[in-house]
Amino acid sequence: MRYPTWLRRHLAALRALLVLTVLLGVAYPLAVYGAGRLPGLKHHADGSLVTSHGRTVGSELIGQSFTGKNGEPLKQYFQGRPSTGGYDPAASGASNLGPEDIVDTLPNPELGKTDPNASQSLLTQVCARSRAIGEFNGVSGARPFCTPGGAGAVLAVFGHRAADGTIPHPTRVVSLNEEQGVVKAPFLASYKGVKVELARFGENYATGLIVPVRGDAPAEPAVPPDAVTASGSGLDPHISPAYAGLQTERVAQARGTTPAQVARLVRQNTTGRALGFMGEPAVNVLKLNLALDRAFPARQG
């Protein structure tokens, strides 16, 4: 019996639906689940979870904070990279700020840090982190293009522009990321003989020439790049050996042991380049801190 064309098309579509449902909705998920139960793969399929004393304390693949009840970093633990999403897997992502993002949106002085319209540029975020990490670890947090107070060292220069776009004889200079009423004085007293002013909330400096000031910070700061920049996911569980080395003395002091003993644990928890040539050596922060707790329990009080 020959069915009408429209019915044959509907039957063909129904058969395709049933076949694809069985293959992709049943067989494929079961195959993937079965593969994930195989020895050697089960740990990874379950999320690479890390346990301590029978309790799950985190994942090898997702970073986490090591802070106290007040949110301050704990001195007895190694700290990871910054996270734009607070190490929340549901908020994974980057800040999407680029290297040319160097001018802050200043807060209303009446609202201060609670001003929802205010925002820090990527440069100021990096500068503020470098200063805080330097103080926390007892080293200099100085960084090129950063003010001593931890803001981006950026000027708006006003005056007649030459043919090459420069302003050889400024008439006014403003420190864009230092707000009047927040800091006492600009990071630079004068620029090309003109007194530098603090920025005022609500003023428009768009017509000025934006001039980043490098300053006298070393080309290779004591605080390494991964300590002040978040990863693309914001969940990176690793830090560089350089950042681990920066924290070693502080952790050793808090643990009541020697930097050499802590450095040994850092080396034991450092992985090399993938396949010997891809990426850079890295230290898993969670595994390192667990190793510290086992070898040198933190002193109380």
Score class of each variant (00 low, 15 high):
215 G>P: 03
41 L>W: 14
262 V>A: 02
280 E>A: 14
11 L>P: 02
252 A>V: 05
7 L>H: 07
31 A>V: 13
119 S>M: 07
70 N>L: 10
20 L>Q: 05
3 Y>L: 15
31 A>S: 11
123 L>C: 03
90 A>E: 15
269 N>E: 13
250 R>V: 11
50 V>K: 04
262 V>T: 04
136 F>M: 15
71 G>T: 10
145 F>A: 04
86 G>M: 11
261 Q>M: 08
268 Q>I: 03
181 G>Q: 09
18 L>I: 14
47 G>Q: 09
145 F>L: 05
244 A>F: 09
280 E>T: 14
287 K>A: 01
264 R>L: 11
60 E>S: 13
83 S>A: 13
174 V>E: 07
52 S>G: 00
215 G>R: 03
149 G>H: 04
120 Q>G: 01
49 L>W: 05
285 V>T: 10
296 F>K: 00
261 Q>I: 01
189 A>K: 11
162 A>Y: 02
140 S>G: 13
44 H>K: 04
164 D>L: 07
102 I>L: 10
215 G>M: 06
60 E>C: 01
34 G>R: 12
76 Q>S: 14
160 H>W: 01
224 P>S: 04
248 T>V: 13
234 G>D: 09
67 T>D: 14
252 A>P: 03
182 V>I: 08
82 P>Q: 09
158 F>E: 08
185 A>P: 00
154 V>Y: 08
192 K>I: 00
163 A>L: 11
84 T>L: 07
286 L>V: 07
254 A>R: 04
1 M>C: 03
80 G>S: 15
125 Q>R: 15
84 T>Q: 13
292 L>R: 00
231 S>N: 04
148 P>A: 08
16 A>Q: 09
175 S>A: 15
174 V>T: 07
159 G>H: 09
292 L>T: 00
88 D>Q: 12
74 L>R: 14
252 A>S: 11
193 G>A: 06
245 G>F: 10
12 A>I: 12
126 V>T: 15
228 V>T: 15
69 K>V: 10
208 G>F: 07
194 V>P: 02
165 G>A: 06
78 F>T: 00
194 V>W: 02
283 V>N: 05
200 R>P: 00
121 S>Y: 11
151 A>K: 13
50 V>P: 04
224 P>C: 05
34 G>K: 05
271 T>M: 09
261 Q>T: 03
122 L>H: 07
52 S>V: 07
23 L>C: 12
211 V>G: 01
270 T>R: 06
181 G>C: 05
82 P>C: 09
42 K>N: 08
12 A>N: 10
67 T>C: 02
207 T>G: 00
135 E>F: 06
150 G>W: 13
150 G>S: 08
109 P>I: 13
57 V>R: 04
262 V>I: 14
256 G>P: 07
263 A>E: 14
62 I>W: 06
274 A>D: 15
132 A>R: 14
244 A>Y: 08
196 V>Q: 02
255 R>F: 02
263 A>H: 07
185 A>K: 13
261 Q>K: 15
136 F>Q: 15
127 C>Y: 10
87 Y>E: 08
50 V>H: 06
146 C>M: 10
232 G>T: 05
4 P>N: 10
234 G>L: 10
235 L>F: 05
204 N>E: 09
298 A>G: 15
215 G>W: 09
137 N>G: 01
269 N>C: 05
122 L>C: 03
112 G>L: 14
184 K>A: 14
48 S>M: 11
142 A>F: 08
103 V>A: 05
93 G>P: 08
